[in-house]
Design a protein around this nucleic acid. Structure first.
Lengths: 141, 141
DNA sequence: CGATAGGTTGACGTTAACGTAAATAGAACG
DNA sequence: CGTTCTATTTACGTTAACGTCAACCTATCG
């Protein structure tokens, strides 16, 4: 029962597809699908995929983006704003402009979310009022 | 060119499907689809749909829910928390419990959103640093 | 009355984001 | 060497949320 050798380059930096699935609670299909959509770029050891620290950081952002309801294509564009290589000044300036737009979107969503939370609380207040009215009726009957 | 008569019951409370589409920027298909999924309940004048104030309030919530990435089924369940009829105490208590869970979800999302905003700002700071570094190099050359 | 405008009900088509199954490959165990 | 594990590619299937016809009704204008 050999578990590994030196030659296995058991890099703690990289993870197998199964390790990724366990760590992020996704299926292999999902990871391969994300690679095909150029959201992840695992390296290859022979035929097998090895996911790097960078892939894990990206996957974290991807899953959060999904919870926010962004499409994978929108997420892919968002990811481009991170991982800025050594670009030209013009390109960096452009990236910064796009990032500012995305930031405005996020802040807009935050405002909407605050509204939704306030409304939900108000609604709960009304239900509580109805309940206290009911128990009053019972108590004072 | 007659526009309307008294008998038309030109209720300012109700809107035709086209008025709804213009007001909310959706297609007729979308409104009919939402009705089929029991998210909206327009009344009928003969064959034609008439959307009430209640339908408009619901549609507002539906569209916001969509921007948050909720599925229509999730939204339908959320809508049940609003429009509470005259229910039994037990049922009201249950509704309140469910509402509390939804509220926790929303607040959880807001926390995540705050993280995302902070990260985006940090990333923009890094890009700005790179840019100032570039212009420094030019100025001091 | 005929044409036009606005609405209706099917019913099939489309896209995104995977699920699922079949066939294949290589490493390791016994 | 045969099996077992893990992973891979290929490819068809599925669900949600509509889009897009086609065929039909019906009120009103001219």
């Amino acid at each position: 029962m050999m578990l590994m050798t030196i030659g296995d380059l058991m890099d703690p930096e990289t993870m197998s597809i199964r390790e990724m699935c366990d760590a992020f609670d996704v299926t292999p299909r999902t990871l391969r699908f994300y690679e095909s959509k150029e959201l992840l770029f695992p390296i290859r050891e022979g035929q097998k995929r090895l996911f790097t620290r960078r892939d894990r950081a990206r996957l974290t952002l991807i899953l959060r983006g999904k919870r926010f309801g962004f499409s994978l294509e929108e997420i892919r564009q968002l990811l481009e704003l991170y991982y800025v290589g050594d670009q030209q000044e013009t390109q960096l300036t452009r990236t910064l402009e796009v990032a500012q737009d995305r930031l405005s979107d996020l802040e807009q969503r935050r405002a909407e979310l605050d509204d939704a939370i306030a409304e939900m609380k108000s609604q709960m207040g009304m239900i509580r009022d109805m309940l206290s009215g009911l128990s009053d009726g019972k108590d004072t009957a």
